[in-house]
Write a protein that binds this DNA or RNA. Structure first.
Lengths: 145, 145
DNA sequence: TATAATATGTCAATATAACTTACCTATAAT
DNA sequence: ATTATAGGTAAGTTATATTGACATATTATA
């Protein structure tokens, strides 16, 4: 057991609180835009992933979100009603559905993202490239358990 | 506008996804313990803060959690029923209530924390002290907007 | 070809955590 | 005396998720 300060319980508690607050703040900046379209955090996350992974399949979306089919389906139905997403069947395996943002969906994502990214952008702008790289590195290690 | 790679939209999107996943994973490791005591994520967060800030007042808890009184009250009632917390009136201003974990509360927190901290601990153990310091630094900047 | 596995959809019921609006008491500060 | 602060509560609602069960279409495999 190393005796490093940052491996002590108090520091770990502090980091855990920061991870929570960081997440909460990062996903609350765009609330006004979500309200404008009568959607919520769950929809924002899906739109975000659709923007990152164009044509992602339903099962891969599920794996990334770690929610149930039923839960995702509600969100997708809302997004269809809002006319923001389209589906395309896989040409080889027609069981697979690929999901895409259409033009309206992309526009709404950009509105959300414009607000959401500000916080991160400013934090990174105010940091050295090494700080940023290390932030990313440690976060990745946390994720990969 | 700097032309740094990590300030590009794709990288910002990637970081935002990581912040979400990092949070979700960090707060899901202890689910089994929560189930054991029939409590949820909201209770875990309160217990966590009570462990960090012994004797914190209700209003300061509310400010840290950013939820409504009604929402916090439900959680506190559950924790009272579970016999994990106690209150002490402020000796000077008796309107203020200080909240503490009792022995049982502290024991349950340790059970939760033991599982939860593993992920963070291992990530930090696998990192240099500079990486950890930079992680903390950037996270703080994200929080402070 | 029959069977199993995969990808997706859906119904019903329930749980968790939060919200809004409104009103209340007690105490402290001005 | 009035206002502000700290906290509590009631009723109704919303957002997001769950479990369990069942259905369909398609692909892979024995």
């Amino acid at each position: 057991m190393k005796e490093l300060l940052y491996l002590k319980d108090d520091q770990l508690k502090d980091l855990i609180e920061k991870i929570f607050v960081g997440y909460r703040e990062t996903f609350s900046d765009s609330k006004k835009i979500l309200d404008k379209y009568s959607i919520g955090l769950a929809h924002q996350k899906v739109i975000h992933l659709l923007s990152m992974y164009e044509g992602i399949s339903i099962s891969k979306l599920l794996a990334k979100l770690k929610v149930t089919k039923q839960s995702l389906n509600r969100v997708l139905k809302d997004l269809i009603k809002l006319e923001t997403i389209v589906f395309k069947k896989d040409e080889i395996d027609t069981r697979i559905k690929h999901v895409y943002l259409n033009e309206k969906g992309k526009k709404i994502f950009e509105e959300i993202f414009l607000l959401q990214k500000k916080r991160i952008y400013n934090a990174l702008l105010d940091s050295s490239s090494e700080e940023v790289i290390n932030f990313d590195k440690v976060l990745k290690k946390i994720i990969n358990g």
